[in-house]
C-alpha cells in the first residue's frame, strides 16, 4: 500500500490529478460539468470530499455542486465495480425484451432486478435509456463496448466472458 515515506500516496496522486483538471478548465466560463466529468473519469466516482474540493476551487457552494451532480444521471456518488454493464431500455429494446435481459443479467450476477454492484466489486449493472443502436435491440454496453441482438442466454454468455477474463488474468 501507499503511504510510505518518500512515496506519493494515492490520495496525493488523486489530488494532483484533480488539480490538473481544475487548471485545465479554470479559464472556461461555466465549465463545472466537464470538470466533474473528468474528475469522475479519473476517480471512478465523486465522493463528498471531491465535491467539496471542486466547490472550493470553482467558487461555488457545495450545495450548488451537489445540485448539479444529482441532476444529471451520468454522475455517481458511490464507487462502481470493475465492469460497468448498462442495459439499454430504449423503445426498440423495450419492445424487444429488455426486461428479460435485466432478469438474465441481474439473475446471473445475483443482483436484484434494479441492478447495483456485486459485493466483490466486479460488476455494476444499471439501466439506461437508449444508447442509439436500436437496430441491434436488445442491446447492452459493457465498459462502453456494445453487445447487440441479445436474448437471455446470449446476455448471460456475454457476462460469463467478462468473468472468465478475470479468472484468466489471475491464472496467468
Amino acid at each position: 500500500m501507499a503511504g510510505k515515506a518518500g512515496k506519493v500516496t494515492d490520495e496525493e496522486k488523486q489530488r494532483i490529478a484533480l488539480d490538473r483538471v481544475l487548471k485545465k478548465y479554470s479559464k472556461q466560463k461555466g465549465a463545472l460539468i466537464p470538470v466533474l466529468q473528468e474528475a469522475q473519469e479519473g476517480l471512478g466516482y465523486l465522493s463528498e470530499e471531491t465535491l467539496g474540493y471542486i466547490a472550493r476551487n470553482t467558487g461555488r457552494t457545495l450545495a450548488q455542486v451537489y445540485g448539479v451532480v444529482t441532476f444529471y444521471t451520468q454522475f455517481r456518488l458511490e464507487p462502481i465495480g470493475r465492469h460497468l454493464v448498462r442495459i439499454c431500455h430504449g423503445t426498440a429494446c423495450h419492445v424487444g425484451g429488455a426486461e428479460d435481459i435485466d432478469a438474465a443479467v441481474c439473475g446471473h450476477l445475483d443482483l436484484d432486478q434494479e441492478g447495483g454492484t456485486t459485493p466483490d466489486m466486479e460488476f455494476t449493472v444499471e439501466k439506461v435509456v437508449c444508447v442509439g443502436a436500436c437496430s441491434l435491440a436488445p442491446i447492452i454496453l459493457v465498459d462502453n463496448v456494445a453487445h447487440g441482438r441479445l436474448d437471455s442466454e446470449k446476455a448471460r454468455k456475454v457476462i460469463r466472458e467478462y468473468q472468465k477474463r478475470k479468472q484468466g488474468a489471475r491464472g496467468s
Binding site: 431500455h89 430504449g90 423503445t91 426498440a92 423495450h94 435509456v129 437508449c130 442509439g132 443502436a133 436500436c134
Partner: peptide, 11 residues
C-alpha cells in the same frame, strides 16, 4: 443531445 429513445439518426 439526441435523447428520444428509438432515434439515432443524429448519431
Amino acid at each position: 443531445d439526441e435523447g428520444d429513445p428509438g432515434a439515432f439518426m443524429d448519431r
